[in-house]
Amino acid sequence: MAVASIGRVVPAWQGPLLYVEYSWTWYKRSWRSTIVSSVVNPLLLLLSLGVGMSIFLGSNPKIAEFTGGVSYLVWLAPALMTTAALQTATFESTYPILANFQWVRIYQGINATPLSSRQIAGGTLLWIALRAFSVSAVFAVIATLLGAVHSWAVIPAVLCSTLGAMAFSVLVVAFAVTRVDKQPGFEVVFRLIMMPMMLFAGTYYPVETLPVWAKAIAWVTPLWHSTELSRGLSLGTLDPLSALGHLTYLVLLIVLGTWATMRLFVKELEK
């Protein structure tokens, strides 16, 4: 052979990391603008609600009944963390995915390299997970500085928050891939799924106070499970059996959604 290419096939595990490296290069340009919507806004909500409600409700004994004695601010913080992570991850799973498939066609470009469609899908999900993790972590650090976090258990809580965000995100990414070259329909996801989930997941008040049909909604949402986990860890009220239940549910969704996402990426990229 007259020429020998310098290209080689990277190990399977490295493919997704190369996609993450690309995403990082891309994200570095504009992280300042995203930090406001993904972290600053939720923190403002935490302050206004946490502090405001504490003053408004004063020492109402009903509060202590469900917070287990901690202030409303401390009770609210882990739940707003999971919500913030989920919101950011959900957004990252909609228009950016469509852009990569049909507007900028980044994925088609990468698909012409030794990276496989599955590795591209894996990298995409990994990047969203890192975004959800970073939002959770930054939120946790600032909430700690604001006095809304009292325990080192916030560290595993950050991981649970990431897990919860991903359990929903993998499904949204899969949905997004089915919307390539069609009407996106993401407004339906935002308004009819994400918003109600944020209202019924026991973020602002305990799910136990809801009627049974509303409780049922909470139980299917990944956000309720991750909120229970994060809050339970932060406040030290989590019992191992329910922890296992929540984790199993979230991991199941992630496995299912990842499988679907990979299949759909292959179908879309290898026509």
Binding site: G7, E21, T25
Partner: peptide, 9 residues
């Protein structure tokens, strides 16, 4: 540069 990375460079 990014594209070259996908080829293990």
């Amino acid at each position: 540069q990014i594209y070259a990375r996908y080829f293990g460079i």
